[in-house]
Simulated assay, not measured.
Amino acid sequence: MPVTDVITDTDNLTMTVIADLAAPVERVWNAYTDPQQLERFWGPPGWPATFTKWDHTVGGRADYTMNGPRGEKASGTWEFLEIDGPRTFTVLDAFADEDGNPNPDLPSMRMTFTFAPSETGTRMVNTSYFASLEALEQVVAMGAVEGTKLAMSQLDAVLQDLRDYAQGKGTNVELLDDMHVRITRLVEGPRELVWRAHNEPELMQQWLLGPDGWEMTECIVAAEVGQSYRNSWAPVGDTEGQPFGFEGEALLIDAPRRSVTTERMIGMPIETLNDLNLYEEDGATLITLFIEYPDKETRDMILATGMADGMETSYARLERELLTV
């Protein structure tokens, strides 16, 4: 995770984020000044940002909305006050409605980003200046420190070529906090086909099988928000194990980029929130599954079942059976 420190200074009314990044200054500058790249890490996992306006000039504006997993929205706007590329830029940052109109009931702040060479590549320092102690405390209470750390944890994948970042690493599991896990897997194939493989029963039944020796006996897809899905598996032949399945509801569908569902093992009360995101670069697709568990104990119990190993077997089968055809 690139963030090395987040400092709240109540005397000077500032919050400072310091990050050490393994990329040259020019590359980091590009990530912060290209809205398509910025969208990939400005919002924390589960709240990806979409920039609807981008005028990167002094006096220009940028408008964005972060989209929560249950349909929630949180919008903001930047007014560019100073730009001195690739070293620094300053914005007036404000909470806003979806049309970009600042919300007078929430605090605004002046934010300065600086980028300087370091031994590892670039040190990024982002300092937010608040008008009052109450404004600083309000933003911190809204989860700004934790959200910033989680958002910045996505930046490494943006700064590197996608294959350099993920190829050959298999199914990677990251524990983000007690309740959240991020699972990533790069597959060689276009996003459109990877999306279809996750949403069309005849394709799902060819690869979404976990360890060898199992078959999918039931595959009901939720094609629209609010619909329910149900998937079941059973052992084949001499394979040991008991049939099982999962069910849940679709909360968000944004084909072919993102889907959010609830998930419960059939017959069990435990529910997780699964946020699937697909990003394509140069013919390869990064699958990112962000999972929210009800508590740490449930997280650890489920991960201990060997879930990641079963996912890796399925992803390898996906590449072998569908993406290389």
Rank of each mutant, 00 (worst) to 15 (best):
D164T: 14
M265G: 02
V17A: 01
V181G: 02
M204R: 08
T52N: 07
V125M: 04
M66W: 05
G283C: 09
E280Y: 09
R299N: 02
E249Y: 02
I302G: 05
L21E: 02
T50E: 11
A96T: 09
A96I: 10
T14K: 05
T184I: 03
E271R: 12
T8E: 10
A316I: 11
D238S: 09
N67L: 14
L276I: 15
Y129H: 15
Q154K: 14
L276D: 12
T184Q: 08
N172R: 13
T77Q: 10
W47Q: 10
L322K: 06
L273M: 13
E215G: 10
A222H: 07
S228G: 07
E134Y: 03
N172Y: 08
T262R: 10
D300I: 04
A250Y: 05
R87D: 14
G237M: 04
R70E: 07
G306V: 10
E188N: 15
V28E: 03
R320I: 03
E192P: 03
N172T: 15
R123C: 12
P45I: 08
V225W: 00
I253W: 04
F95C: 04
M142I: 11
V145G: 06
E146D: 15
E146I: 11
Q36Y: 14
G68D: 07
A135S: 13
L38T: 12
D9H: 00
D105V: 02
L175G: 03
E297N: 08
